[in-house]
Design a binder for these strands. Structure first.
Lengths: 345, 345
DNA sequence: ATTTAGCACTCCCAGCGAGAGAGTGCCAGT
DNA sequence: ACTGGCACTCTCTCGCTGGGAGTGCTAAAT
């Protein structure tokens, strides 16, 4: 693949920017008039032909303006990726919202999804941070009704899991509390593996509960990540390219299948460190439902401790210059929150 | 309003059924041919004119077939409401799914939403059951990091609330446990009001936490109900009446505003007992976004103890004969689950 | 008195062709 | 190397027209 001259680069960027704004094929004349480049339409046409040859542009019909190809978007994104920064005022507004929210995971996730969606005018996805290494910290057993017992487990790092158990026979709250105390002493700080191979003697109840604890910790480790938060689903319906066709439906269907969404988020961030972010353009040949879409994805959290992912889905024509810095900023914000939560204030 | 003759009634039902199937205006000829009624098109036309006069039908253009009005749908629904019953096989399939699911509220809600959406081909909404009278049962205080403390509260009936507190200064786990034990003895079974007016002396920590408990219980009572679960958002996009216009977007926007959705669910079920269900047709003049839509809503749970609501949103042309029994059945199913949970197994 | 056949009328919609407009590629001139 | 000019292509938007479906009315039939 040939390198682009400086002029070709400028033109390509202009064309893509304009197309993102107007959603309409860009012609040479329009370009020459609108932006005051010292070039005649004819020259621009020549360059456009070259860019088309190289695979960055495409014409919908023999005689229409040019439209970016996926390759074109990729070039565009890689060029503007590093320069873009969210305006300070917006940064402050967002930080302020997080500062005001109640300090609960649930609130933070919802807020993050909402901020991403409104800022980027796309559909946002945020997964709750997920401990990569689960360590037991504390368990509480609370008798609720008859043989039903509420088990609340806390992991090192603050992750909480609650579950309702049904025991073989009723057990008093006293006996439950004693069992919990014994187990807390025994298991504090242990990993899933350590707990799985453990046996305890005195009370058969202890052993039963130990098994349940191990099982639950395994479940936490296995599930790819926590709950999925989403917002702005209707934003994408407003885009002209989705107003009539059923591509929108196909793309949104992803949000009805948590499994696909999960794999999408995790598979595409497997190579990227926290802090770096990935832009999938046009489904990258792998996700057929997203052929018309792009997705900006990032991973946040503290590697090795707890991480989650977040992203924005939009039409391929989305405003990358707005979405990318937003995603980056929110990812950093959530990373800070996770970090505070792990290491104390 | 005049009463309908038996024949008019039959015709109206046929027309609406046919329109729900085909989404196209129904003409007299088509009706006479398709269904073997012993009537000529001319007679049918006369009756149709009468039905139009009475406000049950409408013609999109001077010379097109008839389409049901909202009034027509209302009549239709009230007529078929009692007769419809979900096929036994479907009932079994659904029950089986619930039986297989892990016995957690979260799972049940998700499953209920999923079942409703796939059965009715509409958008489903389910709110978690919400205790109408909150009574304290148990609190646990677990030190997590520095001054941060995880507070887990259990209400009578099994509702759980967890929250992270940040204390003025670090407190040892021992002191926290003692405080929890004292408070548990003191507060067991008390209502929000009783707790709000209480004062405790010995340790200032106890009083601080008591305030937080009261505050949290008030929050639980106030919030109209629990989390909202939703499914099938893309179903509605498949309907022909939404394929091109932006009515779909307007309707789906509701799902981006939990507050509106809540008020919709609660306001419209305020008059109906658990078990009875309501059908809102065309927004009932109150919800403008739903002018093109209908909604089947029911309340489930144990009145006076814990209730929630669930519903299905679809185009006004939705299959009521499928949706209504499904909503009724799932509501009954969830009521049973809530009941089991409250009264022990 | 109710139902039916016939008929004229209305209105939507799909298909067609013309003309405008926008954009292109290429060539020749600067 | 750039630009002006030109012929060409293709789409999109009208306006028009004919077919089709459905209606309401009236008069005849049951």
């Amino acid at each position: 693949m040939n390198h682009l001259t400086e002029r070709q680069k400028t033109l390509l960027m202009l064309i893509i920017r304009d197309f993102i704004d107007t959603a309409q094929p860009i012609g040479s004349k329009r370009l020459a008039e609108h932006y005051h480049i010292n070039l005649s339409p004819a020259t621009i046409r020549n360059e456009m032909a070259a860019l088309t040859e190289m695979g960055f542009l495409r014409q919908p019909h023999t005689s229409a303006g040019r439209v970016p190809t996926e390759e074109g978007y990729r070039y565009f994104v890689s060029e503007m990726m590093h320069s873009a920064e969210l305006p300070e005022t917006v940064q402050h507004t967002i930080s302020h919202q997080f500062f005001q929210a109640r300090p609960e995971l649930d609130q933070w996730m919802t807020l993050a999804a909402s901020v991403l969606a409104t800022q980027s005018q796309g559909v946002s996805v945020v997964t709750a941070p997920h401990a990569e290494q689960v360590k037991f910290k504390h368990v509480e057993l609370i008798s609720t009704q008859g043989r039903q017992v509420l088990m609340v487990m806390v992991m090192v790092g603050g992750e909480v899991s609650q579950q309702i158990l049904t025991l073989a026979e009723p057990v008093t709250q006293d006996r439950l509390s004693q069992a919990a105390t014994r187990l807390n002493g025994l298991l504090a700080g242990l990993t899933t593996e350590a707990i799985s191979t453990l046996t305890v003697r005195p009370d058969p109840l202890d052993q039963d509960i130990l098994l349940l604890i191990a099982q639950d910790m395994r479940r936490i480790t296995e599930q790819a990540s926590g709950e999925i938060y989403t917002d702005g689903l209707t934003n994408v319906l407003a885009e002209p390219e989705f107003s009539e066709s059923d591509d929108a439906r196909r793309a949104l269907r992803i949000f009805d299948e948590p499994a696909t969404l999960q794999s999408l988020l995790s598979r595409s961030t497997v190579n990227s460190n926290v802090g770096g972010l990935q832009v999938l353009i046009g489904g990258e040949g792998e996700w057929d439902e997203l052929r018309q879409c792009s997705m900006v994805i990032a991973r946040y959290g503290v590697p090795g401790m707890a991480t989650g992912s977040l992203g924005v889905l939009g039409p391929m024509r989305m405003s990358y210059s707005r979405t990318i810095p937003t995603v980056r900023f929110v990812a950093a914000l959530l990373s800070d929150l996770v970090n505070d939560n792990i290491s104390g204030e």
